[in-house]
């Protein structure tokens, strides 16, 4: 995936059974963002693979004050890339469950 400066990782082990997963996001390279992020914290949140979109979560992070609105696309892309990887991995490892 492209290096967006925003890192997203699983916050729990994925067994491929739940549609909701816990993710953790943090800024690795603030220089890649247009605005100043709120702080250096890691933001943990849940994401429903079947019902939600990365754009929804990114928008909620902007509205919650974590990022400037000009960074909504880069945050959404960072989440989207990780979600795509998780879904690809699920289909490869547990095809019968998907």
């Amino acid at each position: 995936a492209e290096d967006t400066g925003v890192r997203v990782e699983l916050a729990e082990e994925d067994h491929g059974r739940k549609s909701t997963i816990a993710l953790r996001l943090w800024v690795e390279d603030p220089k890649k963002l247009k605005g100043k992020p709120k702080d250096n914290g890691a933001i943990e949140f849940t994401f429903d693979l079947e019902r939600e979109t990365p754009d929804d979560v990114a928008q909620e992070m902007i509205e919650s004050g974590f990022f400037h609105e000009s960074d909504v696309k880069i945050v959404a892309k960072s989440i989207r890339d990780r979600v795509a990887l998780i879904q690809w991995r699920r289909k490869r490892i547990w095809p019968a469950l998907q």
Binding site: E28, T46, E60, F66
Partner: peptide, 27 residues
């Protein structure tokens, strides 16, 4: 505790914790 919880109006919870130094990229 160093954890901070932010709840968005749509109901999603964001839990913020410090990033370990080892996870931050060296510049």
């Amino acid at each position: 505790s160093s954890l901070t919880q932010v709840v968005h109006s749509a109901g999603r919870r964001f839990i913020v914790s410090p990033v370990p130094e080892s996870r931050l990229r060296e510049s």
